[in-house]
Amino acid sequence: MTVTDSSQIPVDRAEIERAGQEHFDRIVAADSRIEPRDWMPEGYRKTLTRQISQHAHSEIIGMQPEANWITRAPSLKRKAILMAKVQDEAGHGLYLYSAAETLGTPRRELNQQLLHGRAKYSSIFNYPARTWADMGAIGWLVDGAAIANQVPLCRCSYGPYGRAMVRVCKEESFHQRQGWEILHALSHGTPAQKQMAQDAVDRLYAPALMMFGPPDSDSSNSDQSMAWNIKRFSNDELRQRFVDMIVPQAEALGLTLPDPDLKWNEERGHYDFGPLDWDEFWRVVKGGGPLNAQRMQRRREAHAEGAWVREAAEAYAAKHTTTTTALIGD
């Protein structure tokens, strides 16, 4: 088929595809960046749109368990840090949606996919944040696992995602440190505080390990993503790296990781760890986690209750395209 481009020169669609694919392959082979205006295979666009929007949804839903403790934070300093952290997460959501939009799907549509249950978000946020110590364990374990996942994504072949990840990772490392600090204060505090810290780690350890996704043997999207330089390491490799990292950290905290099989394997040069409950993982993924329904209900309520506000802003903008400038000044 012959189509006409903006400069009115007739071009061949098949020829564009062939040249585009060649350019794409060359960039991927050179481990360089694909940018929004570059030609890309439909599968690449679809995979990235799904992955980046899921990541954005996770940031937005992930605000809930921590927002749950803003009003009850036990010191004003902790309250300020927690507010800033949850606010960072909204910021991450915003720039991830922006990165996803460069692939052609508007934020409004991505949001609809979340609200109608057609899009997923990280399952970890379907577990409750029961005590203040969960703010520590979420920072240390959940943000820690997120960093292990996201640092390699800074080198993702898709430019806007890779660059967003650089900034996200910087902030996440602060988040992890503040989580560690909360647990450190608790584990060096009163016996009740230490118990609170241990209980949170007991509950969140296994779900945090499952954040890396199913074992490599059951992971459907991995190979293609590796070939496209979206993903750099397999789920199991990242999980192992994370376990190796947190074992000495747990020792420094004086807390125990709830896994009797956890031990150093001299031969492998890694920690061995026990099996994870993948039935539970799939159950939560499919909507049956402790708080899936509550998290979605809260997001839908906020969206529905904000509808009249968004409509008002649009109506005002339509009426006042000129007077707003006069009001705000220049």
Partner: peptide
């Protein structure tokens, strides 16, 4: 105001009210 974070009409407002 801290209550609004994660409940605002738009993400931008979660950030603004949080700020």
């Amino acid at each position: 105001l801290g209550w609004w974070i994660s409940r605002a009409p738009e993400m931008e407002e979660d950030i603004a009210l949080g700020n």
